[in-house]
Amino acid sequence: MKQRWSRWALTAGALTISATAFAAGPSAEMLSNACAGCHGTHGGSAGLTMPSLASQSKTAIVEAMKKFKSGERPSSIMGRIAKGYSDEQIDMMGDFFSKQKFHATSQAVDAAKAKKGADLQEANCSRCHLDDGKDGKDDTPVMASQWLPYLQMQMQLYQSGARKMPDKMAEKVKPLSKEDLDALLHFYASVK
């Protein structure tokens, strides 16, 4: 951009227009920093119902934003915010947050539940939610260290049908009891 500007300035000769008038569009960082008031600096949330976006799967963020925008995924405020961005900008934000350092949280979880959840994760979820839910390289969202109230809220939305589960996930979740699911969430919240 800078190069293009100087070349243009050269051909334009004596034109003296302030550089501000020709400001580039918002950068990925500019777009993403605006989210940090709620989602924490660089996407590391301080809780309790706001998810961390740091190191999140880029695909997961982009899909979530597009679904908020279309109304397919239920929300209170995110739908109104997502409508403020182009698909290209959503892509830039997804890219920015996916590259931030993993945000480990310290939260109180039930140790017995977390232990049970670890076994359930291994048996049921680990083929997609790799590395105890820490890996967000593909399209599977990072679950590790997300705040428990956020995880519980989303599971409620899944259970009520307000948020649609991916088919592969629905298959695994269906046979699990309420207690099993709760244990799983305690496990994910405890992973650092």
Binding site: M30, A36, I81
Partner: peptide, 23 residues
Amino acid sequence: AKICATNVVALMNKREIVGLSGI
């Protein structure tokens, strides 16, 4: 504050102004 900080840094480094986005 973030819009301002970004462009204070740009101005102090004689870089181009970054386009605005706020919430």
